[in-house]
Amino acid sequence: MSAETPAAGGLSEALWRRPGLLLLLLLTPPLLWLGIVYIGSLLALLAQSFFSIDEFSGLVQREFTLKTYRELLTTPSNLDILLRTVSMAAAVTVAAAIIAFPVAYFAARYAKGGWKALFYLGVMLPLWSSYLVKVYAWKLILAKEGILNWAVEGIGLGWLLQAWLSLPILGGNSLSVSYTGTFLVFLYVWLPFMILPMQAALERVPGSLLEASADLGAAPAATFRHVILPLALPGVVAGSIFTFSLTLGDYIIPQIVGSSRLFIGQAVYAHQGTAGNIPLAAAFTVVPVVIMVIYLWLAKRAGAFNAL
């Protein structure tokens, strides 16, 4: 019998005898993809940020230096960009979590059948339409002569909007040219990315634990704080990773709605173009990477990944 074993049989036998080999064969292509296309390009980017641009000729000097990072971290306008982007990302994440929680909670615990389908449709529907169309639509909604302004005037609350717009940093000439407007559009566009993981996490919280908590005399607030929130935390963190990193990297929304003050993504775009300042653009790109690493590390310390 052994004399008649065809080659294919030998192969399958070898794979069966050594499962590690099969694993190696299956994993090599995706790992190569991940290693070369993802990590490799990231490292190439990182390397660029350690070059510098020659002040006189404007040419990139391919020698190791920390000059570009010094420029990034000591120029006030660059620091402004970093601070502006991180604050916006944080604000959007917190607001998205607050708005998403009740929605996700209702969908996970109360919605049944048709309601649940409606919920999924309602959350996913905006994701199916073009991102640009949504942002342009928001620009029109928020415009000085747009529908929102008109409606607010109509119900006699124009003074409130004006008071808000006269605030020093948050305000502006109209909602569409203020940080408030940028914030609202970010919040709208990224909200589904917060709701869906939250809802998945809340669904996995066993109802029996909530009943047990109530039986032991905990008020709803205490149950929320000590049972629901810790168990749903992985979902909240997963959602916040989406909203936070997506806001950090976006360069379209602040260009269309806002006061023209740059965010990190726009700064990268501006520096890599005709300016040819690739090192500074690369250094700007490294910032969100570093921030996300720190963020994930903090989330891990908070125990967000224990349930994984």
Partner: peptide, 17 residues
């Protein structure tokens, strides 16, 4: 003043610096 300085400084001006 070369163009790349125009880029970084104009970013600063728009950012209110």
């Amino acid at each position: 003043v070369p163009y790349y300085r125009w880029v970084s400084d104009y970013i600063g001006v728009i950012g209110g610096r």
